[in-house]
Write a protein that binds this DNA or RNA. Structure first.
Length: 102
DNA sequence: CGGTTGACCAAGT
DNA sequence: GACTTGGCCAACC
């Protein structure tokens, strides 16, 4: 049973531990594709909010990017998990960045 | 089935 | 440092 591309993004995202973040690029690459945009698109169209920690996904440059509930909400949620955000960017980005295991 | 869209990325100006 | 261009890919209309 092949899950939809979106479903796979959610599954990967659920692997991200609390207090860590990942990037759209990392997810796409982990799936073996370059659909950076499709990943973000999946979240925007159907933010499986309570099941998937959509707020732990940021742009590859450390900027939060967008969020269906609003950027402020994203910042608040990250702060609640221990991730510091400054000027719309992740503080200690490399430290908080989660790498997917093979 | 073709064209548009988008929570992106990298490089150039 | 800010803006523009081209490229990439899946979902939607």
């Amino acid at each position: 049973m092949m899950k939809s591309f979106d479903e796979r993004c959610y599954e990967l995202l659920k692997q991200v531990p609390k207090g860590k973040v990942t990037t759209y690029k990392a997810i796409a690459e982990a799936l073996g594709t370059k659909a950076y945009r499709a990943v973000g698109n999946a979240m925007n169209r159907n933010p499986n909010a309570p099941v998937v920690p959509c707020h732990r996904v940021v742009n590859s440059n450390g900027v939060l990017g967008g969020f269906a509930f609003g950027q402020a909400e994203k910042i608040s949620r990250l702060a609640a998990e221990g991730v510091k955000v400054e000027q719309g960017k992740i503080k200690n980005f490399a430290e908080c960045l989660y790498e997917f295991h093979p």
